Computed example of a mutant assay.
Amino acid sequence: MKTHSLSLYAANKTGRPVVKNTGWDLIVEPGDKSLEEMIKSVDKGLIMGGYSGGEPGTNGEFSGVAKNSFFIENGEVKYAVSETMVNGNLGEIVKNIRDISKEQICDGSSVVPYIAVSGVVISGK
């Protein structure tokens, strides 16, 4: 056995390091741009901290509410948004990745960088 997928509990009990995720979750390799550089390249968009919506349809279409998100305009973070809807197609998003940050976020179940995409419809306050 080359690795052990230890939870925080098991890591504390054994003294071994906790894994970044459980093995069932997502790990995305970082890119080469800083988040700051990525923000500066956005004319209008969102930094999405979370998403609340159902499962995408069989054709990849999704629609939901951006949570813990901030409006970007002319390369600057302007303000927090509320009740803002986002929708698009997952297949198209993958084709429209513009940048991937070198910074990653580890929340205990996934390790992901920020990913800048185009082709998502944003509507709301």
Rank of each mutant, 00 (worst) to 15 (best):
G53F: 04
E83Y: 13
V19L: 12
K40V: 00
D25F: 05
G88P: 01
G57H: 04
G60K: 13
A80Q: 11
K40Q: 13
M48P: 02
V19D: 14
K67N: 08
G50I: 02
G88S: 04
G23I: 00
D43M: 07
I39H: 01
S34T: 05
L35Y: 07
S52A: 13
L26Y: 14
A80C: 11
T22Q: 06
G88Y: 09
G75A: 11
L46M: 09
E37F: 05
P30G: 11
G64C: 10
E36Q: 08
K40D: 05
G88D: 04
N21S: 03
G23S: 13
D32F: 07
T58A: 13
N68K: 02
K20M: 03
N87D: 05
G88M: 03
D25W: 12
A66N: 06
L26G: 00
D32C: 05
G57A: 11
G64N: 05
A66G: 08
S82Y: 15
G60A: 13
I72C: 02
S63E: 14
E29Y: 01
T58P: 10
T22K: 05
G49L: 09
S34V: 02
A80D: 08
K40T: 00
G49A: 08
V65K: 11
I27P: 03
F70Y: 09
D32Q: 09
L35K: 10
V81K: 03
L35H: 02
K67L: 14
K20D: 02
N89T: 15
M38E: 02
S82M: 13
